Amino acid sequence: MPIHLECLSHTPLRGYFDPAPDVVAEIDRVQAAARQRVRAFDPELIVVFAPDHFNGFFYDVMPPFCIGAAARAIGDFDSPAGPLPVPGELAEALAASVLAADIDVSLSYRMQVDHGFAEALDVLTCGLDRYPVVPVFINSVAPPMASLRRARLLGDATGRFLSRTGKRVLVVGSGGISHEPPVPELAGASAEVAERLIAGRNPSAEARTTRQARTVAAARSFTAGDSPLRPLNPEWDRAFLTQLAAGDLTVFDSMSNDAITRDGGKSAHEIRTWVAAFATLAACGLYRASLDYYRAIPEWIAGFATMHATPLSAAATAT
């Protein structure tokens, strides 16, 4: 089965509070190269692993993993909005196969996805609907969260299913590395904030604007060095990216959630999306990975990276 992987960081802050123009330009070049790789691969199916930021998933029911059999992007922070072209029967079959592999996963016929999904699709395909896509949500901000080991096993089960489809599949992991944006927590929250975290779907335009302004203000404070948010950790980021490229994903099984928070920040748990994506690829055989870009970008409160990978068999054929 032809398979290709693209993993990339996302940010809702682009266009709201950007780094220097030369940094934006170098990211543009890296993302254009990723788009060209995707265009050349011409996938028949895209599987996207991404988190949510209390825009589509809430504590009324917070699954560790959820596969969308139908999904719509909400368009937060001016990200693309609208329905995703999900092949429902294939998504259902994927969920059944993952469950048969003893990985507990939910299934949604009305999934709402935010910029974590939409930005990746837009960067890689210039929209939401160019290719059939199955969205796979991985809870990365709302404790308790599944372990990195479970995220790896989710990817492994997904890869074994995809290998039987015969389709040309693009696997995408969308998430930050070290970062701690101002995402609220249920523990210790006021009654108003708690209600928003439990049942906050479809907020008013005013409420969304207020939330976005709060995030931009936090980024300005973080960049100025006047912020209680955890600093970025480039050393930790690079060690993580190096290990992905090395190919032994089981090393992440022993990385605890507490250690991720301590070293990378409260939202560094989004590395689960990268681990799941690479495990999907690894289920189809050995791979060759390339770190295309890394920079710690305080304006976006993110260790920002891009990687791609292909099976060793495909690389050998290409040479």
Rank of each mutant, 00 (worst) to 15 (best):
D60E: 13
R220F: 00
W236H: 12
A142T: 09
G265Y: 07
A34K: 00
Y16M: 06
V38M: 06
G200W: 13
Y16F: 15
S190F: 11
A277L: 08
V171R: 00
I103R: 02
G68L: 07
V169A: 06
V98D: 03
A120I: 00
A282L: 07
P143E: 14
T261I: 12
V98I: 15
A246G: 05
A219F: 05
V216H: 01
D60A: 08
A71P: 13
Y59C: 02
E180S: 14
F278T: 07
F222C: 05
V216E: 05
E180C: 07
G116Q: 00
Y131I: 07
A33I: 02
P228H: 11
R196M: 14
F240C: 13
A316S: 14
A289Q: 04
P43K: 00
A314D: 15
E6H: 09
T158S: 14
V98Y: 06
K266F: 03
C66T: 12
G127N: 05
N202T: 13
I271W: 01
M62G: 02
T250H: 11
F304A: 00
L124I: 00
R201D: 10
L121Q: 08
A283G: 08
L121D: 04
F17P: 06
W236E: 04
D226W: 01
S190W: 13
E89W: 03
R168C: 09
T242K: 08
D114T: 03
F77R: 02
A71M: 11
E44I: 03
L244E: 10
S97T: 09
R39V: 08
V38Y: 03
G155H: 11
S147H: 07
V133F: 01
C7I: 00
L170K: 05
F65P: 05
L232R: 08
R37N: 08
L154N: 03
A205Y: 04
N257A: 11
T215M: 13
T11F: 00
V24A: 14
E235A: 15
H269W: 10
A187Y: 06
T215D: 12
G285A: 12
T215Y: 14
